[in-house]
Design a binder for these strands. Sequence first.
DNA 1: ACCTGAACACCGTTCAAGT
DNA 2: ACCTGAACACCGTTCAAGT
Lengths: 232, 232
Amino acid sequence: METTTQAGSPAQPRAPLSKERVLSAAVALADEGGVDALSMRKIAQALGVVPMALYKHVANKNELLDGMIDVLVGEIDPPAGNTDWKTAIRRRVLSARRMLLRHTWATEVIESRMKARATPTPAVMEYLDSMIGIFRAGGFSVDLVHHAMHVMGSRLLGFSQELFEDSSGREPDPDAMPPEEMAARFPHITELAMAVAHDPDSVVGSGCDDQFEFEFALDLTLDGLERLLRRN
Amino acid sequence: METTTQAGSPAQPRAPLSKERVLSAAVALADEGGVDALSMRKIAQALGVVPMALYKHVANKNELLDGMIDVLVGEIDPPAGNTDWKTAIRRRVLSARRMLLRHTWATEVIESRMKARATPTPAVMEYLDSMIGIFRAGGFSVDLVHHAMHVMGSRLLGFSQELFEDSSGREPDPDAMPPEEMAARFPHITELAMAVAHDPDSVVGSGCDDQFEFEFALDLTLDGLERLLRRN
DNA sequence: ACCTGAACACCGTTCAAGT
DNA sequence: ACCTGAACACCGTTCAAGT
């Protein structure tokens, strides 16, 4: 009802807009509506600013996305000291995973920007570098850590990569296949799905215990690497 | 110079437009210019047709993308008979990888559509089902094949997922870091990069032997699974 | 010198008007 | 009944006109 500035509450509609404010507004918007719905115009609107004002702090949308990735990488826990390489890597990767689960759009943006850029951003480089450092301190040769980084690739800044994620709240398929046809055409999937559904330990409704599956895969890889290391 | 139909060459500008023609035109355009540059309008133009004509064969752009994925899955070699599960899986995954390398935009589209859809398309389901079938025929329990599918996840319809791919032909970074600063800030990356650069066996210029790295990671996973299988 | 509105060249998709 | 042009509601970004 009152458009002029009130005495008691300065209304502060004009906090001085910085790159940080732009980036965190962008991250918040992406968290809410996904990265496809993210536009320069909407970020500006959320900040109470004209669209062109953003271009004073980021050169273009790609640079904005790079900045958003750096914000995310900053959320990954720093490496733990006083442990062996295996638990240090394990904790770090699981911390990265938690970040990825908080920001569902992260893998998409990271992957597409990594593909487009000649070099990852410094923040990503720093993260990768400290990962390599943990392996090296654990006694890995340069060659073996090279392979290890490639093996870990998809999990380092990885993907939860669930093939059959919880499907509630997604586009419902108007002409979905009837269960009988499913069972006839895809017997192995059906068998597997049935086993999962009847497993009392599995999470009700969602089917797969994503966390368990992720750790299972991670440990399989880490054990394999450890075996190679011992063989030196 | 001649706009009317010639006698010798019927000019056939009006092949009757089918869903298949639309999809293969879309795949060809994506192969050329990437999926970001793909638009309904450009597909129509390539087919010599008005944009709205496409909507007779695909309901919307998402359905178009789903159809394109099916075209790609159709390019993966069928499972080989007369072999053990390990070589059968290996061949199939490597065939999928070759498809992914032919269509650089594939992983991006597959990942984003898998995330959006409640169920993968039937063609993708068929592929996954026959994969599970190979494991089952190899003696895997339903439980173990369940885990195996999760482990293989990122490689099944996977990602080449190279962290440091050949950077030629990508956006050059105007303010790239000087090598000395690189070495100081990222010692481990530098060490690794140097070792790779001085390895006479590595591919000149591109740095990493992507194919070798992919197979290294794949075999590490497969060997781990085999060990679990033997332990039954 | 700084800021910004209008404009440009695009999108996917709707819809009513044409045949 | 079919087909399609124009239009709608968006984009990211340029640029010239305002202060």
